[in-house]
C-alpha cells in the first residue's frame, strides 16, 4: 500500500474496535443506560441521534463478486437478499449528520438496534438476542 501523503488523513481508527459499540445513552444523571424505549440510533461517530437523521442502506456484509462470476452468481448478488425474522445486519448512513456509513444489528421483530459497528468490522456475536418483549 502506498504511503499516504501527509495532507491526506485516512480515517483508519487507531484502535479498531473488535467489540461492537453498545447502544448507549446518557441519562440526565450522567449514568449510562441502554436505550430501549425509542427508535434512536447511536452513530459510531456522533453518538445517539434520532432515527430521522439516518438513511437505511439495506443488508450489510454483501460481498461484491468479481467480474468473472457466472450469470447466476451475479444475479444472486444483484437481486437476492436475506429477510430474517430476528437479527438483521444492515447498513445505515448518518445522512443528516456526519454523513458516515456504519453497520447495525437490528432485531426485525422489535426493531431494537442491538449493536452498531463500523464499516468493515466483522459481524458482532450477539448471544441470546432478545425476541419480543420481556414478560
Amino acid at each position: 500500500m502506498r504511503e499516504p501523503p501527509r495532507e491526506w488523513h485516512i480515517d483508519e481508527p487507531q484502535a479498531r474496535r473488535t467489540q461492537p459499540i453498545a447502544v448507549l445513552a446518557a441519562s440526565a444523571a450522567g449514568v449510562f443506560q441502554p436505550i430501549k424505549n425509542m427508535l434512536r440510533i447511536s452513530c459510531p461517530h456522533c453518538g445517539i441521534r434520532d432515527e430521522v437523521e439516518f438513511a437505511f442502506g439495506g443488508p450489510s456484509h454483501v460481498t461484491r463478486p468479481a467480474f468473472e462470476v457466472s450469470d447466476a452468481e451475479w444475479a444472486d448478488y444483484l437481486f437476492n437478499r436475506e429477510n430474517p425474522k430476528g437479527i438483521h445486519y444492515e447498513r445505515w448512513q448518518h445522512a443528516y449528520g456526519c454523513g458516515r456509513w456504519f453497520n447495525a444489528a437490528r432485531d426485525t421483530v422489535t426493531h431494537e438496534i442491538l449493536a452498531v459497528y463500523r464499516m468493515g468490522d466483522p459481524k458482532p456475536v450477539l448471544p441470546g438476542a432478545p425476541r419480543g418483549r420481556a414478560p
Partner: peptide, 16 residues
C-alpha cells in the same frame, strides 16, 4: 454525491 460516498465508504474505503 451520495452514490459516490456510499461506494467510497462501504466498498473502497482504502482509496484516498
Amino acid at each position: 454525491a451520495a452514490w459516490l460516498e456510499e461506494w467510497h465508504q462501504c466498498e473502497w474505503p482504502q482509496l484516498r
